[in-house]
């Protein structure tokens, strides 16, 4: 129990230190607002802010689901269809080498200001960790178990569903956790490109009017949202990878 709360204590410690240092050194609020001021700004602006928050949350969720589905699909295709992995694998890595900031405006030119370019941006950042994790999971399936399955006359389908998929679940969940945290970031970036709503929009407006406190409200909201997504994935993992949890105890 103590270990679980240690992160909270650390956070409190940092916030108190920040607050104290801000007062001590008299840092102006437009440069670095103190935690209490950020909290106040958040409460004052809440009625406006929560609409942005909801918009970003649903965009991240939708983007994450699309990205995770695309990532799993890509992994399964690359793993199951012979001859696909070697030619396509480098392109999957290359897809991550194009900076999203550069790609995003292009996507707007091609697909307009609607939902599609935003979902594409989030999918691009989310699918990669899922694909790599799933592929590694499939590939690292215990050789002895594979031998047992093939010698026992298992079909390729049985080998995949009864062995490779359950075997790679822990690995897939690692990928999903990374993707879940990336998805919020992806959503905010995609909102910068031109959106009417969302934390990304709120943030841009706040920073251009030097409302640093509101920028920090946005930052904390992004963090909390990422944590929430992460936590949901952890809960799902606990449910689907039950046998492993017992092992750790």
């Amino acid at each position: 129990m103590k270990k679980r709360w240690s992160a909270i204590w650390l956070l409190l410690f940092i916030l108190i230190g920040w607050e104290a240092a801000g007062r001590w050194m008299e840092v102006p609020a437009w440069l670095l607002p103190s935690p209490l001021k950020i909290f106040q700004a958040g409460i004052e602006d809440w009625t406006r802010f929560y609409l942005h928050l909801l918009s970003t949350a649903s965009l991240s969720l939708g983007g994450f689901l699309t990205g995770a589905a695309a990532g799993l699909l890509a992994a399964v295709l690359l793993h199951r269809v012979p001859g696909l992995r070697h030619p396509l694998y480098p392109f999957i890595i290359l897809s991550q080498n194009v900076p999203v900031i550069v790609l995003a405006p292009l996507l707007v030119i091609w697909f307009g200001f609607g939902l599609l370019p935003k979902v594409i941006v989030i999918t691009l950042v989310c699918f990669f960790p899922v694909t790599i994790a799933a592929l590694d999971g499939f590939k690292q399936t215990d050789r002895d178990l594979v031998h047992y399955f093939t010698m026992s006359g298992a079909s390729k389908k049985q080998l995949f569903w009864k062995l490779e998929v359950p075997h790679s679940l822990p690995s897939i969940f690692s990928g999903l956790k990374i993707a879940a945290t990336y998805s919020v970031m992806g959503a905010v970036i995609s909102e910068w490109l031109g959106s009417k709503q969302g934390i990304g929009v709120y943030m841009t407006l706040a920073s251009s009017s030097f409302r640093t406190d509101r920028v920090f409200v946005a930052i904390f909201a992004i963090m909390l949202l990422s944590l929430l997504f992460f936590f949901v994935i952890v809960l799902l993992e606990r449910y689907f990878v039950r046998y492993q949890r017992k092992e750790l105890r």
Binding site: D142, D144, L145, H147, Y148, M151, S152, K162, L163, P166, H167, L169, V241, Y243, Q244
Partner: peptide, 11 residues
């Protein structure tokens, strides 16, 4: 077939 290691599925 029964392999050298028990090869039970952990899940």
């Amino acid at each position: 077939y029964m392999p050298q290691s028990a090869s039970l599925l952990p899940w």
